[in-house]
Nucleic acid binder design. Structure first.
Lengths: 202, 202
DNA sequence: CCCGTCTCTGGACGACCGTCAAGACTTTCC
DNA sequence: GGAAAGTCTTGACGGTCGTCCAGAGACGGG
């Protein structure tokens, strides 16, 4: 029979799945989707490669599960800045601080996100999850933008989707430069955001 | 010895390399980097897989050569619209027409570009070429934007890099939706560009 | 204590990967 | 026409991939 589908053991199984998913995320972030094998993932965990098929049907289900766990962490990154800022300038400062921190602090996690989002352009199995996360991120950006407009007594001049696409484009270019070793990546991103954002909210 | 490095045969070799590079591009666009093997590429050409190592040292050189040929086609896409437009509105219309046409007409080629650009985040061997193409595209966008400003008697309100990142972000989101089968992808992109651009040039 | 269930290991499978080399075929030149 | 150079095919190599499975070990209830 399969893993303990009934009884209290369910959460034990869920925990193991999380554990393996974490190892998978770590591996994917380091190697990228194209170069990550199940044995690489198992090597980052404390188990052997066979166990992956005990907790996941196949590779797609494993990666899908990874992505689902990843989303939960991402989509609240700027919420504290939104909640505590008392002026528009404070909000922008908080947003930029957080954005810069993630750019320089965990660039690998972000290149993984872009990698997986790209894979969804080729692999339909990833599309639903990717679209869901993208929507979560869009809403997160929108919370920042609409609060910014509120604090500065103005209105957003573009749709939620447009704001997300714009900021994501800026971040992606910065990430490319950051990973190429350009020390100006973070400052340039800050400058670009401060340049662009106020013009789209006035 | 290797292929005819001397004499007139050089262009024959270059032509063959182009032929194989075209097959490689076609394959990569269809399958994505992660799923493309040399045998898949050879199957799209009229040759067998062994010949690839006769014209290219290894897989990296082949793909690098592909990307280099790809760039030549990309970076002049909007130049005609820039040259012929007599008003700002005409220019935007021409730009949007061209952008929509490539979004719906060759989405596979574009997902390939994003795929390869993403690979450069993991694989340093691709970084130089990707950065070079990105710069070419940035300049192409800048030609459009600065001409637009000129025609409308205004000034661009952000850097060349920022404009490129913004428009690229909008296009990438549209491409994701297009490939997911969303019929609103193209209209939404047009709307977003018309919304955002004038505010960054005024 | 034994037995059934859950968990995990480690090896084996067929397929596919990039690479290479031996040789067949074609072209060129003396 | 024969030799040399250029071009392409074919098959093999070591390796890695996702997947599967037989069985060892751990664990808990009778």
């Amino acid at each position: 029979m399969g893993p303990a589908v009934e009884g209290r053991a369910v959460d034990k199984v869920a925990q193991r799945r999380s554990e393996l998913a974490a190892a998978a995320l770590e591996t994917l972030a380091e190697l990228g989707y194209a170069r990550t094998g199940l044995r690489d993932i198992a090597a980052r965990s404390e188990f052997s490669h066979g166990v992956l098929h005990y907790y996941f049907r196949d590779k797609v289900e494993l990666i899908t599960h990874c992505v689902r766990e990843y989303k939960a962490r991402c989509a609240t990154r700027y919420d504290e800045a939104v909640a505590t800022a008392r002026t528009a300038e404070e909000l922008v400062a908080g947003f930029l601080r957080e954005q810069t921190a993630t750019l320089t602090g965990e660039p690998q996690m972000h290149r993984l996100w872009y990698d997986l989002r790209n894979q969804s352009m080729f692999e339909p199995a990833f599309r639903a999850d990717v679209a869901e996360i993208d929507l979560l991120l869009e809403r997160m950006v929108w919370r920042v933008v609409s609060r910014y407009a509120e604090l500065s007594g103005t209105r957003p001049r573009a749709s939620s989707a447009a704001f997300y696409a714009v900021l994501d484009g800026l971040f992606q270019q910065a990430l490319l430069r950051q990973l190429a070793g350009d020390p100006q990546a973070a400052p340039s991103l800050r400058a670009a955001v401060q340049e662009v954002l106020p013009q789209l909210v006035h």
